[in-house]
Every structure is written in structure tokens, then in C-alpha cells.
Design a protein around this nucleic acid. Structure first.
Lengths: 367, 367
DNA sequence: TTGAAAGCGCTAACAG
DNA sequence: CTGTTAGCGCTTTCAA
């Protein structure tokens, strides 16, 4: 770590005290408790500090002594850098940053990267608590966080971890609402595109076995909600094609849509478990000249700005609020002993990517 | 900070050592230098740690001892939370995060907020260095960073600070290229929309006096480049209307465009010093039924994804790369004594929001 | 290999 | 209002 010609810390609190012929306490007080010493003396101290180039109490030493780091750690899925590309994650970050600002706490982004499977970064983080954003149930970094003797708040997943607060939404119920919207429109041939379901990479159709071993509660619950909704109109879940994508990007959604529709051309509605994937499906449709929604209904999940602009039918969730609540839950000095669970509301937003399918009369005629 | 039922640190390195009847050194070595003790002994230590719930060496204490925090501090303009809404800032953050990941260093976001004008957050940050992203020349937080005896790298602004590395682009020259593009097309009635120029809020036309006291080198340089480019075809800068906006948002750009065009209806081209503002101007035009580019040319600066989608004529700059280089500059252990200056290339990207103005023949006929 | 000694720089009682 | 006394929990020469 070079890059500057600034010199190494020249003075310490002790040396300053010696120089001035006062005690260390007095110098410390000059910084931390101005009311504990006379104004002139304080000014003398500060002046000497300026003269000697003393930058004030060392933050690390102070943290050790006070037992508070003044920062919150954030653990994210994937690489840290990915978070800034994902619209849902950035919304969450904004909310969390808001809470931190308000509390005057720093936000330490833990440098997890796919290559360095090194958990030690978690152990090295000087923080007073952790916020964990949407990670796999058996994420090793998360396990490392649990070792640390500091409070932890999880957003979204994993769910139901003992001793840990959680903020999230009711993914299953939200998806149930979306399913009813679609079945109500008359859709019966529905295909699904979902995000990664397990640690190991897989792209393509999801077997029943794999569905039974989903490592991400959020995806699990969204699929479950859909399953329940379809069951209400007699659709057997095992007949519903589910296409998985490991990467979360528009391109991934596009490719998945292509595969899904090639395998199941009779599909009238593609349900995506995220807006990003849905935007990809939308792009595929556009490029193939498939008219949405007339020929194909496409839905998303999240309610990100891009989706709104595209008029996507989706489930909106309060992403920013999740971040804010996560931060507040962690920073809240209230002496709540019991872990808290906060479930925020979602909202079905019907855009213009969903409508009655062409073959609907088939089903409605039966009424 | 509550929220978890996890208990307070139960064991320390010393207590573990006592428990095992070995020295603290041995326990420390078990974690930090596995090759310095026998495997069986190490296993015994680790086992005891597990049993006693010892989470490994305390990061803060270790930092104090080793004199390295293992994290980089990031100082941003505006509120911390704003950064996640700004497409340029998120690009920068992604790049910086990439560099941190690679180096295994944490990224500590310093919680600056407009309300808390409190500089102490900077003094409290336990970091090995700072990256400063695009702040005003006399930003108090920045001044506080300079006090700290750690290396510092600035992105964009302020420029020319002694002892501090800097990464950025040649804003002036980039804008000069854009200006030539416009004058080459035949534009002579040009209006400007720019970002904030000083600490105190101001929205509207910018006086010559205010232009002479711009506190943001980036804006200063972009305007200077434009001025020079226009001077080449004999346009007097004092005739060019410059509209400032304190907030950086699409809405702000839209409002500025409205005011500017109302004041100067003869304008054939609106030059914006950022894409976000330009997108706002574009929106204004669309809503007013002004055909772009036929009736009005609009240009931006930055080359953000949204701008590309909109086909905006703009100056693209390597935002992600800036973040990456900033991180590398800071983390680079090379013993460069002299501060370094890195200037990255930009690229004029001509979209379909610029074309020859309708009154061009007036000028070309003179050839 | 392992251990003993010496702080890193600071704050928080508690006395004066 | 100021100083004295004890560490916070850890790493690291240096010796054994």
C-alpha cells in the first residue's frame, strides 16, 4: 500500500501528552469529551496536535479499547463486484446505506470472490455486526459469520436460522398471487425460468430431484407458490417445465427462454422468478417476432425500474425498504433478546406483458 | 446493537492458551502460521477453540498489532446512499470492488450524509487507505482524509492535490472533441446544462462570476473544453447559456431543459455535462413533441448503459476501469514514492440524438 | 518447536 | 478539572 508520499504516523496520543506535559487522559478528553477540560487547555492540546501532525486518536486502537468498530459488515452472494450490477442488490444497498448513514456507522463490504473461497475475510472484518444479503443456506462465508460473536441480520435467505434476525417478503404467497392472475387469464400451458437453485452450475431443465434439493429458500418458495397456484386449477406441477439459469443476467434469461420455448412451443406464459430474467425472455420474444402479450405472456419478480419501464407484469417488492430495515434491525440498540422476523408486503403489478392467451376459449368454454 | 441472541465473546486467545496449558504464541501460530507448530498440537488448539466457542483472533486487536486494517475506505460525494442510484458511481464501485476482491481487502463505505456534516466519521474509519470519488475541492471530509496518515487515491476530483494519486480522464479534451462534432454539424446556437458547480444550491442560469468560481474541476474542465471548441468557430462563450442543476437526476435535467429552451428558443443543440441530465433533456423534448435530433440535438457525457440504449450522442468514459485503477493504485505495494497520475482514454460516441441543425445552410452557404 | 516479555495506541474507572 | 492505573486482545522478536 503505497501511492502517497504522506509520511507514517509521526505522533501518538502519548507522545503528544508528553510533549505538552499533561496526561494522556487529558489529550484523549480533548478529542472525546470536550466538556471534561477547560477550553484553553483543549485549544492548547489541539494546537500542539496540529503542530506535531497528530491526526487524532487512532481508530483501530480506539475500537479495541471501546469494543466497537463503528461499522457494519455486509456479506453478499457471488462476488462483491456483482452486487453493483444487479438492480435488486443496488436497491438493497441503497436502503442499507441509508440506515448506516443515519446511525453514523460505516458499511464494510466483505470481499468475497468466487476464486478466493477463503473464509478468513469474514474473520478479518472489524465490524460490530453483519448483514447477510441473500445467500445460499450452506454458504461457507455465512457459516463463518455465524461464528463471529456479533449480531447478524439476514435479508431474504437463508431463512429460519436460529439466533439471527431476518427481513424479507413472503415469496410464496406473492407468487401464488401471480399464479392466480395467470390462471385467471386462462393460461394453462405455463413454463418457468428460475435463478440458480444450487451451488453447482446448471443451466437448463430442472429435474424433480433437483427441485427437491433447492439450496435457495427464495427460489424454493417462489416455485412453491407457483405450484400451489397452478394446482388450484388442476395443473400438475410435474407437467410444468422449469428452466434454470446459473448466471443472473438478461442474456441468461434470453437463452433460457429460447430453450424453453423450443422444448415446449405450446407454452402460453413464461413465468420468471426475477425481472432480469424476464427482461431476457422479453428480449428473446422481441427478437423472434413473438408478440407479447398476444402470443406470449411473460412475467417477472422484483419490480425493478427497468421492468417498470418495460411494462412488465411482475411482483413488486420493497427492495430499498428491505435494506433499510436490515440496517435498523442491526443497529437498533433496543434490548430485544428474541430474534425478530420482519416480513414486508409485496404488490402484484400487472403491466402489459400479460393477457388472456389465444387458446383461452378452450378453457372458458367449459364454464 | 442487539438483534441476535448470540452471546458476547466468551473466550480470548489468552484464555484458550491457559485452558490448554500452552503459550499464547502457540495459539496465535495455530491460526496465523500453521507451519510453526506440529499438526497434532494445532489440531488440539483448534479443537479446544471449537469447544470453547473461540471464534479466532479478534480482528480489531490483530489490526492494532499488525498495523493493518485490511480494508480500504471510500469517500463519496453526497450521501453514501446516493451512490447506488447513480449509474456512473455504481460503475466505479464495481471496478473498485473488483480490485478489492482481488487483493482480499474490505471496502469500507464512509457514512457521509448531508445532515451530519460530521467529519469524525472519517477519523473513525479503520482503514489502510482511502479512495476519494469525485468530491468538491474544499470538501471537509476530504480535508479530513488528508489528515489521516494513510495513502489516498482520488478519482476525478479534486485534481492536483499534493501527495495524492489520481485517476481520471481528460474531461476538457473530451469535451473539445464533442464540441467539434457539434460545430462540424453546423450548430451555432448551443445551450449547456451542467451539474452543480459549487457547494451552495443553485438551479438556473450561471453567471460569469459563478463560472469563474467553480468548485468542481470536472465540470470546470468540461465547460472549458466546450468553450474552446466553440471559440474555434468564433462563438463567444459569454453568449452561451449555461444552466446549472444542483441535483443530479433525470428530473433535474428535464426541468433544466425546459427552462433553457424557454429562455433561448433559438437553441439548436443542448450539451449536457452528464448522461443523466441529457436523458432528462431528452425526456423534455419527447414530452414537448420536439423531434430529436431533427429539431434539437442533445448530447451527454459518461456513456452509461441507459444512454447507450437511448442512442444518445455522448462521450464515453471507462467508469469501471477508473474504479479498478483507483483500487490498484492504492493497493499496489510497489514502493513508488512519487504520486501517480493516471489518465484514461475517452471515446466520442455519436448516437442518433445529434445531426445537422435546420438552419445549418446559413453557415455552410458561407463556405 | 515452544514460551516469555514487550508493547500496538487508546479509553475508562477512580482518585485527587 | 486532571492524573494514575489497568488493561482491550493480539503478534512478534528473541531465547530456550
Amino acid at each position: 500500500m503505497s501511492g502517497s508520499s504522506k509520511v507514517r504516523r509521526p505522533a501518538t496520543l502519548a507522545s503528544l501528552a508528553a510533549e505538552l506535559g499533561v496526561s494522556r487522559t487529558t489529550v484523549s478528553n480533548a478529542y472525546n469529551r470536550p466538556d471534561q477540560l477547560s477550553a484553553p487547555l483543549r485549544e492548547r492540546v489541539l494546537e500542539a496536535a496540529r503542530r506535531l501532525g497528530y491526526p487524532g486518536p487512532d481508530p483501530v486502537a480506539r475500537s479495541l479499547r471501546t469494543r466497537r468498530a463503528g461499522a457494519v459488515g455486509l456479506l453478499l452472494t457471488e462476488a462483491l463486484s456483482y452486487a453493483f450490477r444487479d438492480p435488486v442488490a443496488t436497491g438493497f444497498l441503497e436502503g442499507l446505506a441509508l440506515a448506516c448513514e443515519q446511525a453514523g456507522q460505516g458499511l464494510l463490504l466483505v470481499p468475497v470472490s468466487p476464486e478466493h473461497a477463503d473464509v478468513s475475510v469474514v474473520h478479518r472484518a472489524g465490524v460490530d455486526g453483519f448483514v447477510v444479503y441473500s445467500v445460499r443456506e450452506d454458504d461457507p462465508h455465512f457459516l463463518a459469520v455465524l461464528q463471529r460473536p456479533v449480531p447478524t441480520v439476514v435479508c431474504d435467505q437463508p431463512t429460519g436460522v436460529e439466533g439471527v434476525d431476518r427481513v424479507g417478503v413472503d415469496d410464496q404467497n406473492a407468487m401464488l398471487g401471480l399464479a392466480r392472475h395467470l390462471t385467471g387469464l386462462g393460461h394453462r400451458r405455463i413454463g418457468v425460468i428460475c435463478m440458480r437453485l444450487a451451488a453447482q452450475r446448471h443451466d437448463g431443465p430442472v429435474s424433480a430431484a433437483r427441485q427437491a434439493a433447492i439450496g435457495y429458500p427464495v427460489q424454493r418458495n417462489r416455485l412453491a407458490g407457483l405450484r400451489d397456484g397452478l394446482a388450484e386449477v388442476g395443473i400438475d406441477w410435474s407437467d410444468v417445465p422449469v428452466w434454470e439459469r446459473f448466471d443472473h443476467s438478461v442474456e441468461a434469461g434470453q437463452a433460457a427462454a429460447e430453450e424453453l420455448l423450443a422444448a415446449r412451443p405450446e407454452t402460453t406464459a413464461v413465468v420468471c422468478t426475477s425481472d432480469v430474467l424476464a427482461l431476457g425472455a422479453l428480449r428473446h420474444a422481441t427478437q423472434q417476432g413473438i408478440v407479447v402479450p398476444d402470443e406470449l405472456t411473460i412475467t417477472g419478480f422484483d419490480g425493478v425500474p427497468e421492468a417498470e419501464r418495460a411494462g412488465l407484469t411482475t411482483v413488486w417488492q420493497p427492495v430499498l425498504e428491505k435494506g433499510k430495515v436490515a440496517g435498523e434491525l442491526l443497529l437498533d440498540r433496543g434490548d430485544r433478546i428474541r430474534p425478530r422476523r420482519v416480513t414486508l408486503p409485496t404488490e402484484l403489478r400487472i403491466g402489459h406483458t400479460s393477457c388472456t392467451p389465444r387458446d383461452a376459449e378452450r378453457w372458458f368454454s367449459g364454464l
